[in-house]
């Protein structure tokens, strides 16, 4: 296709766009709708995964020794005798108000199992994010501004290495040096409700640091790439040719346009944080949702696995959605209607 045909096509697609609503509002609404649909489909996948379970779930849980009568009774108790579609909507309706049913392993209400743990997980992820975001954005900016310098190359090597480290390797190194040999922080991050915030911050320091180290490398590299990409734009050269100082070029000309890519990077990494938390929780025996998930997987406690997966997926989808919307909302070309 020649350039002209492309131009014609582009023009056509511009003309096609709606004229009634602000394009920005329209796009945001579209993304929101898409996010909801995705969440819905994901919930179907998570629910129906159990339907795929080979053999009968009640039989499996009760073991081969169970009599057919007990199995039937248990099936009725689980509601397995009803059609799957009906059960799905029951389950979904419950999930929306935080009622995920009972654990198969210990018959406790899942909501009471999850509640505090989910808060702990969010606390840990938030803690890590508070350190990682400013750190990585600043380091990423510096590396981009002084690219190909010694500093940049050094940072590149370090981040490349730490991306390659498994989370539990970083965690155990920290434990060896800061908990066992250094005895500065506790190796096991047990929390309880009576602790003061300071105490909680102290106890959760090592898991938060582990997450920070892992996420910062990613975020920094992405920030650097976004900024370098931006600094190559003709309008940055134009600003230089207008005699603007380096500082003004960065603050006035690069930053307003860099907002979208940086916000995008941050939200994507927050999403990663929420799942990266699983391994770290296990290492530090941190009472979070991730640990519960791993334990439940080991016990094949399906209902708890379903609930935890839905929550993790929900947060993940939400953060990705947020990244999407924020990067649309901060794009100057979309902010001001044509």
């Amino acid at each position: 296709m020649s350039q002209f045909a492309r131009a014609e096509k582009a023009e056509a697609s511009v003309r096609k766009g709606g004229r009634d609503m602000h394009p920005l509002a329209k796009m945001v609404l579209q993304r929101l709708g898409l996010g909801l649909v995705t969440l819905f489909v994901v919930s179907i996948i998570i629910f129906s995964a159990v339907e795929l379970l080979p053999g009968d779930i009640a039989q499996q849980i009760l073991g081969q020794a169970a009599t057919p009568e007990t199995v039937a009774a248990f099936r009725a108790e689980l509601g397995l005798d009803r059609p799957p579609v009906e059960r799905y909507f029951d389950w979904l309706a419950g999930a929306m108000i935080g009622d995920f049913g009972q654990s198969l392993a210990n018959q406790r209400e899942i909501s009471s199992l999850i509640g505090g743990r989910f808060a702990n997980t969010l606390f840990l992820a938030g803690y890590a994010a508070m350190i990682a975001i400013p750190l990585s954005v600043i380091l990423g900016l510096l590396a981009a501004l002084y690219r190909n310098s010694f500093f940049d190359r050094f940072i590149n090597m370090v981040t490349l290495s730490s991306i390659s480290f498994p989370e539990f390797f970083v965690a155990y190194i920290l434990i060896v040096f800061l908990a066992v040999r250094g005895q500065v922080f506790p190796a096991i991050s047990s929390l309880n409700e009576d602790m003061s915030l300071l105490d909680m911050l102290y106890r959760a320091f090592l898991p938060a640091l582990t997450l920070t180290l892992v996420v910062t490398a990613h975020m920094m590299r992405m920030t650097r790439a976004a900024i370098i990409n931006l600094l190559a734009s003709p309008y940055i050269e134009m600003a230089r040719l207008k005699g603007m100082s380096q500082a003004r070029v960065i603050v006035k000309h690069a930053l307003p346009n860099a907002l979208a890519p940086i916000i995008n990077v941050i939200a994507l990494n927050l999403a990663y944080l929420v799942t990266g938390v699983v391994l770290v929780e296990v290492v530090f025996v941190y009472p979070g949702l991730g640990q519960l998930l791993v334990d439940s997987v080991a016990n094949r406690d399906i209902t708890v696995v379903q609930a935890s997966c839905l929550i993790f997926a929900g947060v993940y989808i939400l953060l990705n959605l947020l990244a999407d919307i924020l990067s649309i909302a901060t794009n100057p070309r979309l902010m001001h209607r044509k």
Binding site: S233, P234, Y235, E237, M238, A239, L241, K242, H253, P256, N257, P332, R333
Partner: peptide
């Protein structure tokens, strides 16, 4: 300086 592509050389923000 006046650049070849004004569309790319004006800051979109």
């Amino acid at each position: 300086y006046v650049a070849q592509s004004a569309a790319a050389s004006f800051n979109p923000a």
